[in-house]
Computed example of a mutant assay.
Amino acid sequence: MNIKIDELLAALKKKEEEQDKNTVLWVLAIIGAVAAVAGIAFAVYRFFAPDYLEDFEEDLDDDFDDYFEDEE
């Protein structure tokens, strides 16, 4: 009789540990999915957003070149 009770308690404990592992796994999966969606959204934003700095650098280079051409 004690053996049966010990077996039942061991099975119950094992089931609780397995359930805890599943909960942690689900939480990590949700965090990973949210991170993936955020990463994709950022990549799409960077792809479609205009690069204003590139235009500024081109204008600055043109002004810089004009300055040295005037001295010669």
Rank of each mutant, 00 (worst) to 15 (best):
residue 1 M to F: 08
residue 1 M to N: 07
residue 2 N to P: 02
residue 2 N to T: 12
residue 3 I to N: 07
residue 3 I to E: 08
residue 3 I to L: 06
residue 5 I to P: 00
residue 10 A to Q: 08
residue 10 A to V: 01
residue 11 A to E: 10
residue 11 A to L: 09
residue 12 L to M: 10
residue 12 L to D: 14
residue 13 K to G: 05
residue 13 K to T: 10
residue 14 K to T: 05
residue 14 K to E: 03
residue 14 K to Q: 14
residue 14 K to L: 02
residue 15 K to H: 06
residue 15 K to Q: 10
residue 17 E to M: 11
residue 19 Q to N: 02
residue 19 Q to T: 15
residue 20 D to G: 04
residue 20 D to P: 06
residue 21 K to T: 05
residue 21 K to R: 15
residue 21 K to C: 02
residue 25 L to Y: 11
residue 25 L to W: 14
residue 25 L to M: 12
residue 26 W to L: 14
residue 26 W to E: 12
residue 26 W to N: 12
residue 29 A to G: 12
residue 29 A to W: 12
residue 30 I to G: 01
residue 33 A to T: 13
residue 33 A to E: 02
residue 33 A to C: 08
residue 34 V to S: 03
residue 36 A to M: 13
residue 36 A to G: 08
residue 36 A to C: 11
residue 37 V to I: 15
residue 40 I to Q: 06
residue 42 F to R: 12
residue 42 F to S: 03
residue 44 V to F: 08
residue 45 Y to D: 01
residue 47 F to S: 10
residue 48 F to G: 08
residue 48 F to S: 11
residue 49 A to C: 07
residue 49 A to D: 07
residue 51 D to P: 07
residue 51 D to G: 02
residue 51 D to K: 06
residue 52 Y to S: 15
residue 53 L to E: 07
residue 53 L to Y: 12
residue 55 D to I: 10
residue 55 D to V: 09
residue 56 F to S: 05
residue 57 E to V: 15
residue 57 E to G: 00
residue 57 E to F: 04
residue 58 E to K: 14
residue 58 E to F: 13
residue 61 D to H: 10
residue 62 D to G: 03
residue 62 D to M: 06
residue 64 F to N: 03
residue 64 F to D: 06
residue 64 F to I: 11
residue 65 D to K: 14
residue 66 D to L: 15
residue 66 D to I: 00
residue 67 Y to F: 12
residue 67 Y to W: 10
residue 70 D to M: 03
residue 71 E to L: 14
